[in-house]
Computed example of a mutant assay.
Amino acid sequence: MKAFYNRYGFMTLLTREIHRFTKVSIQTILAPLLSNILYLAIFGAMLQTREVGIDGVSFLNFLVPGLTTMGALMAAFQNPAFSLIAQKFQSTIQDLNSYPISDVEKSLAFILGGTFRGFLVGILTYTATIPFVGSQISNPILFFFSICVTSFIFASVGLVCGLILDNFEKMNFALAIVITPLSYLGGVFFEVSKLPGILSYIGLINPIYPLVNITRYAYLGIYEGNIWVHGIMALIFLSVAFITSLIIFRKGIGIKTR
């Protein structure tokens, strides 16, 4: 079977996934955007005089790429994950087996739908910070590309979780206990090197840390650690996340009836 053979079916499924979250844009786009703005307002007001160890960089400028990355990955993760869980709840998940498109096309439709939502939230988060810190970006192409890659990775992770988990409680648990703490410890609000004790080592192996660092480098032109290593790690995460999601989808885990 060809990996791509029904572009119209693929585009239909992708359009459905995009339309699904745009119909409730207050929950899927506006709510996370407002949360990120509140983070900027609260942390920025409280810690605006805090030194970040980088000459000439204010804490607000340091915070923007972290919030942008966090907003993108959270939204990207939630879109395919909650879409699949909702279909399981409605007992329509098995309908995916009858779609006349390949497993690669089905997987990509869910992942690209999540990628689009993540990218949209990330860009809107950055746009909302312009009145506070200005619009300067050191490397705009890399900045937007980094947000897109981050969104693609976590949309793939969201697809995996949506297939494996079977209810909203487990999904919210994964989001609250795994994804959110990793985001907070991934350099969004502070330099990972300043974490105390064992937390600094945990931060260095945090898969979100390289993504935040690349986005910060694209935004400010500065970075923490080795940016080339982080670039390689991001490519590895992207490959592993996408291949894993494709394998699980092809096996029919969470889709096929037993």
Rank of each mutant, 00 (worst) to 15 (best):
L60P: 06
G56W: 01
N97H: 14
S35K: 08
V121S: 05
P100G: 08
Q87T: 06
T68R: 06
A81K: 03
A81W: 03
T127Y: 14
A31Y: 13
N79Q: 15
G113Y: 05
A109I: 09
L38T: 06
L120H: 04
F110G: 07
Y126L: 10
S58Y: 01
I130Q: 10
S107Q: 14
T129R: 00
G53M: 09
F62T: 02
S98G: 14
L112E: 00
S58A: 08
I101K: 07
A128L: 02
F116N: 01
P131I: 10
P80S: 08
V121E: 00
P100C: 03
A31F: 12
I101W: 01
F89Q: 14
D55W: 13
F62A: 01
S102R: 09
Q94G: 10
G113I: 10
S58L: 06
Q78T: 14
L96P: 00
G118H: 07
A75N: 03
I101L: 08
G122C: 09
V104R: 10
L124K: 00
L34T: 10
I54D: 06
A109W: 05
F77V: 09
K88G: 08
A81F: 11
E51W: 12
L124I: 04
I93P: 02
P80V: 07
G118F: 05
E51Y: 02
R50E: 11
G114H: 06
V64T: 06
M46E: 09
T115R: 08
F77A: 03
F82K: 11
R50A: 15
T68W: 03
A41C: 11
M46I: 15
F43R: 00
G66D: 00
F119H: 04
A31S: 14
N36F: 14
G71Q: 04
N36D: 09
F116H: 04
N79A: 15
L73Y: 08
G113K: 04
I26D: 11
Q87Y: 15
P80N: 04
F43E: 07
I93K: 07
L73G: 09
K106V: 08
T127R: 10
K88F: 04
Q78F: 04
I101A: 05
S91N: 15
N61D: 11
Q27E: 14
E51C: 06
L84W: 02
F132L: 15
Q78Y: 06
G114Q: 00
G71P: 00
A45H: 13
S58R: 07
L47N: 13
G113R: 07
A72H: 02
A45T: 13
M70H: 09
G114S: 04
L124Y: 07
L47A: 11
L96V: 12
D55N: 12
L30W: 08
I85M: 12
V104Y: 15
A72Q: 11
T125K: 02
